[in-house]
Design a protein around this nucleic acid. Structure first.
Length: 408
RNA sequence: GGAGAGGUUCCCGAGUGGCCAAAGGGAACAGACUGUAAAUCUGUCGGCUAUGCCUUCGGAGGUUCGAAUCCUCCCCUCUCCA
């Protein structure tokens, strides 16, 4: 095991706050002396079926702890998931059914171990303890908190001020999360900055239950590909770790320049010295930021796929978007018609290029549709049903090879 | 339980009998410029081969030639009183 100082250096990378840091130092000292790993907790609500880069900020920190010899304890919030964490939200989350949560939890576990070492990980569902809790116990737990304290929380305060609804069950979220820390005796919990309140609440609950309070470590909230809002599935600005190399690379290329450095820092294993170099070059505008973005894209693809995939994804990107050539794999669609000719928008909807004929008509009117490299200018254009393959390009990035079969 | 305010298209929000598929902004999409960056500019932004028709303004009914707008009942949210 490394010394306290060395461990702290790794632990601090990319973190926002460690509270209280002195306690962490003591815990580390004890851990080294007794050769006993710390229990590092992080919770997840399986509210969507997959993990995106936003989640990996914390998971990667967990991984660093594992590399330092500590034990990761993952909490899958099957019960809290049903409540829905209101953190960072201005509205009540839809409550998920138990089945949905369980199903998502499965894919989560698979994805966790793309990053984490299974041998140094403990996984718990918080239903393990919550499903057994009596109403009496719940009331007891709830009695330890006052409304005023819970309402201190940013998002509650905000919503209260704006007179938007806050459901009672949401108030339980921090308490439940805190109780998780009691149940698994966490030494340290990692969460995004918006989790600060929940993380701190856990300390109080742990003390209430006479368990040594956890140290809390917060990580920045990762902005999504739009560069404005937090990365989240529902906002559509996310990059999933299960996405294809091309998708991941392409999405990275579309992020705003300001995100390049934070993404490097939070999402890659690039060593600190190089990180400083990147920062300097980006600030000094010495290179075209695009070059660093390509590097970023390939680093990230490498983590979730392979070096080879990363190279391929980059080559493909340059081919399609820099040289304006055709992508490697274009989906082929076969459609059959009983007429000899079809109105173009119909082909667009049938193939999935557009969701409605109105949309297809607009696409054509705006000059966004190309068939066999020729821009379609006439909305009324009909296509011959000739059984041959035609190349459809809609917008910048949608390609289809479409075969129209005559089938009277 | 009482009094008041409110629920509008993906989101915010205007609209209080016809000029409303519904202002404005955001998001999104397409085009121009580019580095599939940002910024900017232009256009589109419910559906239907459509100078028209259909569906939409919390829900269900009703008044009217005509309703997001008026009436009745119901559901939901917020504020104050208890």
């Amino acid at each position: 095991m490394l010394g306290v100082k060395e461990q702290l250096e790794v632990i601090r990378r990319g973190t926002v706050e460690i509270i209280p840091e002195e306690e962490l130092i003591i815990k580390l000292e004890v851990s080294i002396k007794e050769n006993k790993p710390l229990r590092i907790k992080m919770g997840f609500d399986p509210t969507a079926p997959d993990i995106h880069l936003g989640h990996t900020v914390g998971i990667r920190k967990l991984k660093q702890f594992q590399e330092l010899g500590h034990l990761v304890v993952l909490i899958i919030g099957d019960y809290t998931g049903m409540v829905g964490d209101p953190s960072g939200r201005s509205e009540t989350r839809p409550q998920l059914s138990y089945e949905e949560v369980r199903k998502n939890a499965e894919t989560y576990q698979k994805q966790f171990f793309k990053i984490l070492d299974k041998k140094k990980t403990e996984v718990h569902f918080n239903g393990e303890w919550f499903s057994k809790m009596s109403f009496q116990e719940i009331m007891h737990l709830a009695s330890k908190f006052t409304l005023a304290r819970i309402l201190e929380r940013d998002d509650f305060a905000e919503r209260y001020k704006e007179q938007s609804p806050i459901s009672l069950h949401e108030l339980f979220y921090p308490i439940m999360q805190g109780y998780d820390s009691v149940a698994i005796k966490a030494d340290l919990e990692i969460g995004a900055t918006e989790q600060k309140f929940n993380l701190l609440t856990a300390r109080q609950i742990q003390e209430e239950y006479r368990v040594p309070p956890q140290v809390i470590l917060t990580m920045p909230v990762l902005p999504g590909t739009d560069g404005v809002q937090r990365m989240s599935k529902s906002l559509g600005n996310y990059i999933g770790i299960d996405e294809s190399p091309e998708e991941i690379f392409g999405k990275i290329m579309s992020i705003p320049d300001e995100l390049i450095y934070p993404y490097f820092e939070l999402l890659t294993d690039i060593p600190p010295a190089e990180l400083r170099k990147i920062k300097k070059e980006l600030e000094g505008k010495e290179v075209n930021p695009m070059e660093w973005k390509k590097r970023l894209g390939s680093e990230i693809v490498k983590l979730y796929h392979s070096q080879k995939d990363a190279e391929k994804a980059q080559a493909e990107f340059e081919k399609v978007f820099s040289k304006k050539e055709l992508p490697e794999n274009i989906p082929v669609k076969e459609l059959s018609y009983s007429e000899k000719q079809v109105w173009t928008p119909y082909v667009c909807t049938a193939s999935g290029i557009a969701t409605s004929t109105s949309q297809a008509v607009r696409l054509i009117e705006q000059g966004g549709l190309y068939i066999d490299n020729e821009r379609v200018t006439d909305v009324n254009k009909k296509i011959e049903v000739d059984g041959k393959e035609h190349l459809f390009k809609a917008g910048k990035r949608t390609f289809y090879k479409i075969i129209l079969k005559y089938n009277p």
